[in-house]
Computed example of a mutant assay.
Amino acid sequence: MARALPGAVRPSPIHALLALDLIAISAFLALHLAGRSTGHRAQWLMLNVDHSLPEFLLYGKWLAVALLLVWAFRRDSGAVWVALAVTFLVILADDAFRIHEREGLALAERWELSAAFGLRARDIGELLVWAALGLIVLASIAAGLWRSTPEQRKAARPLLLTLVALVVAGVGVDMLHSAVSGALLGHPLKQPVAVLMILLEDGSELLLGTLAVWLAMRRAGLENGSGYGMPATPTALAKVR
Rank of each mutant, 00 (worst) to 15 (best):
M1D: 05
A4H: 13
L5T: 06
V9I: 13
S12K: 12
A16T: 08
L17C: 06
L20Q: 10
D21H: 08
L22F: 13
I23R: 00
I23F: 12
A24G: 10
I25S: 04
I25C: 05
I25E: 08
S26M: 13
L31H: 10
L31C: 13
H32Y: 15
A34V: 07
R36E: 15
T38W: 04
G39C: 08
A42H: 09
L45R: 13
M46A: 15
V49D: 01
V49I: 11
D50G: 06
D50P: 00
H51Y: 11
S52M: 01
P54S: 02
L57V: 09
L57W: 04
L58S: 12
Y59F: 11
K61P: 01
W62I: 01
L63S: 08
L68H: 06
L69G: 04
F73H: 12
R74N: 07
R74V: 14
D76H: 09
D76I: 07
S77A: 10
A79S: 12
W81M: 05
W81L: 05
V82K: 14
A85F: 07
T87H: 07
T87N: 13
R98E: 14
H100A: 02
H100T: 02
E101I: 06
R102C: 01
E103F: 15
A106M: 04
L107Q: 03
A108I: 07
E109W: 05
R110W: 14
R110T: 09
W111D: 14
W111C: 03
L113N: 02
A115N: 08
A116C: 12
L119F: 05
A121I: 02
E126D: 04
L127C: 14
V129G: 07
V129M: 10
A131F: 15
L133D: 00
G134H: 05
L135V: 15
L135C: 04
I136G: 11
I136V: 15
L138K: 09
A139V: 04
G144R: 06
L145E: 08
W146S: 13
S148D: 03
S148P: 14
P150W: 11
Q152N: 09
R153N: 12
R153W: 03
K154Q: 14
K154I: 07
A155I: 03
A156M: 08
R157P: 00
P158R: 05
L161V: 15
L163E: 06
L163T: 02
A165Y: 00
L166H: 04
G170N: 08
G172M: 09
V173N: 05
D174Q: 15
D174L: 04
D174P: 01
D174S: 14
L176K: 06
L176M: 15
H177I: 01
S178F: 10
A183T: 13
L184M: 08
G186Q: 11
L189Q: 03
K190H: 15
Q191A: 13
P192D: 09
L196Y: 05
L196H: 09
M197L: 12
I198L: 11
L199M: 11
L200V: 02
D202K: 08
L207I: 09
L208E: 02
L208N: 00
L208M: 06
L211W: 10
A212N: 03
V213H: 11
V213L: 07
L215Q: 14
L215W: 07
A216P: 03
A216Q: 09
M217N: 03
R219H: 14
A220C: 09
G221S: 06
N224T: 11
N224M: 09
G225W: 12
T233V: 00
K239E: 13
K239T: 07
V240W: 04
R241V: 12
